[in-house]
């Protein structure tokens, strides 16, 4: 059976619901069209993304558990320090999986396939595959981060970053185990996917999900030695900020006078993730001020 296709040859375009529609044909203003494009581009939900992510993490756990168990059976036995690196990677994937599960993620499947039997017996095939898979995982979390940004969820951007960068560590160490020098051979991580769903499609195309190779079931996490890693949850300081508000100094903001201007501003604030409750409070205060002034004019 042939080795998996090279992931770098795969490119997936970003989906958009407005592809080919054109703002003019729909009678939209440019601002409204822009808002709709932003919403449409985020066509995957948080649930979609985390469900795919946990599926990938459980695939990684399945492969690593099997590899570690059979480390001495490879044509070039997997020894220290490489074996410990794999154990550290397994521990990390378990913590990723557990975090996603606690966040409500459900795997799309827990049955995987090994596209090339040499992955389980040939050292070079194994680590070539690990390098490719880790590159895909980094790219998947990169896509996830961008999608979370589109949704206005910087806190989830942080988590995607914290996981994706760890997958990059696995990539370079697998590259080192493969004998490539320099092992750190990329200036920018590969940007392979427009959306996380494209990563899932790639795993299917490579034969790890629904393929014709040997079937392997997710074994659970009991085979992992979790003592290999620390920083076991995405903690630490977060960045909480809002874009600078234009023209807030005395005299009001440009474009915000009149009914349409205020509603547009409140809409923009909603996009920036300002809580509905906050926007609601402000709306009620402004309405009360407006009514008070109307009464004063009537008097």
């Amino acid at each position: 059976m042939e080795a998996p296709d090279n992931l770098s040859q795969m490119r997936f375009s970003r989906r958009t619901l407005l592809k080919g529609a054109g703002a003019g044909a729909m009678g939209l203003t440019l601002a409204q069209a822009g808002l709709l494009r932003s919403a449409a581009a985020a066509s995957e939900s948080v649930s979609d993304i985390v469900n795919i992510a946990i599926t990938a993490e459980e695939l990684a756990i399945t492969l690593l558990t099997n590899v570690i168990k059979n480390a001495s059976g490879y044509d070039q036995p997997i020894k220290e320090p490489v074996l410990s690196v794999l154990k550290g990677a397994l521990a990390s994937e378990v913590y990723h999986r557990d975090y996603l599960a606690k966040a409500g993620a459900t795997p799309l499947t827990q049955a995987f396939t090994v596209p090339d039997p040499k992955i389980l017996s040939d050292y070079d095939t194994l680590f070539t595959t690990v390098v490719q898979l880790e590159s895909a995982f980094v790219a998947a979390y990169t896509a996830a981060a961008a999608e979370f940004a589109d949704m206005g969820k910087p806190e989830l951007v942080k988590v995607a970053f914290q996981i994706g960068a760890v997958e990059a560590e696995h990539r370079v160490l697998a590259n080192y185990a493969l004998g490539h020098r320099p092992a750190n051979n990329m200036a920018f991580e590969a940007n392979l996917f427009g959306a996380v769903g494209d990563a899932a499609a790639a795993l299917k195309k490579l034969g790890f999900i629904g393929g014709s190779g040997k079937q392997v079931s997710y074994p659970g996490t009991s085979g992992a030695d979790l003592s290999y890693v620390s920083h076991t949850y995405p903690g630490g300081p977060s960045v909480s900020c809002m874009p600078a508000m234009p023209g807030t100094g005395g005299g009001g903001m440009a474009g915000t006078s009149g009914e349409g201007g205020l509603e547009q501003m409140l809409g923009i604030l909603g996009l920036f993730g300002v809580g509905a409750a906050v926007v609601g409070v402000l709306t009620r205060r402004l309405t009360a001020q407006r009514e008070e002034r109307a009464e004063q004019r009537a008097d």
């Binding site: 990169t142 961008a146 920018f188 874009p243």
Partner: peptide, 22 residues
């Protein structure tokens, strides 16, 4: 990456992770 997200710049979020990963 988090600030780029708050600034509505998802493309820059991608670049931040592409560099941060390295």
């Amino acid at each position: 990456a988090q600030e780029f997200a708050s600034l509505g710049q998802p493309s820059l979020v991608r670049v931040a992770l592409q560099i941060g990963g390295v």
